[in-house]
Design a protein around this nucleic acid. Sequence first.
DNA 1: CCATCATGTAACATACAAAGTTACATGAAA
DNA 2: TTTCATGTAACTTTGTATGTTACATGATGG
Lengths: 152, 152
Amino acid sequence: MKRDSRLSGVLHVLLHMAQQPGPFTSETLAKAVDTNPVVIRRIMAGLRDLGYVRSEKGHGGGWTLACDLSKVTLRDVYVALGSPALLAMGNRTEAPGCLVEKAVNAALGKAFDDAEALLLARLGEVTLAMLSEDLGRRLGSRKQQGISAHHR
Amino acid sequence: MKRDSRLSGVLHVLLHMAQQPGPFTSETLAKAVDTNPVVIRRIMAGLRDLGYVRSEKGHGGGWTLACDLSKVTLRDVYVALGSPALLAMGNRTEAPGCLVEKAVNAALGKAFDDAEALLLARLGEVTLAMLSEDLGRRLGSRKQQGISAHHR
DNA sequence: CCATCATGTAACATACAAAGTTACATGAAA
DNA sequence: TTTCATGTAACTTTGTATGTTACATGATGG
């Protein structure tokens, strides 16, 4: 199954934005994560709707952070993406008539639900600020560098 | 992302087999789970290789359970399928050079790993025998019924 | 006013994996 | 030797993320 990397991608973008004041055009951000500007607009749309970022058209326009990074968790970002499926596996049929299927769904469903809940809880424990601080530590003495320097 | 239902499907098949002595042809099993005989052979191949089931060709042939149901867990069945991806999401890039990507991967990777570990642990707690017993309870007074009766 | 820049979005193309299907080889039983 | 069943390769279908093109919308600067 093809892996969904939108959460990973949008976090990368947000971290880049947290390193410098901005605004950033979709094209600049696209180069930083090696993708297409339209893809950036696509994954940022939900964040904009929830007020986590702002977008401006025209000269000097682009994307700007519009939230308190210590108040937004990775889970919030995930939800902003539209809460895509977390698990690659699922029950063959939901609401089956067959009792065998029901027994299988009950056992698997419990395991699946527990794993999803744990994942969401973990994502809810990490704020964008914590992520940004971790990045700061990784950058070490090389602070205040631009996007181009972070990317190979 | 398209949902992988092989684990759900193969468990359904195994439970059906546990209800009656067998052997069962791929065609019979395919009808029970509403799919194609080749799909049955495909998802059963790994189980056969690990000795959980046996297959016989020719007249009177088909699939037979060949293991102690109380010794095989849902995790064992999952592994027999080839341990397909559990999570629908993943990091954009493994082993990135970019420090921003590394920070994102570290945070997400931890959450992902924890969720995967929990899911595998849960699957490891449930044996096929437990699943079969649960099915027995669900069937209630309607014991000893054939496959056709279980399926709508 | 208008040329330029940037987002917003629809529409289409591509890539990939699960699931479904067809075809045929292999081997066992009647 | 005919029939039945698995084993497997090859192909088709389907769903979704991702990539791309095209164009509309709106803001800025001259």
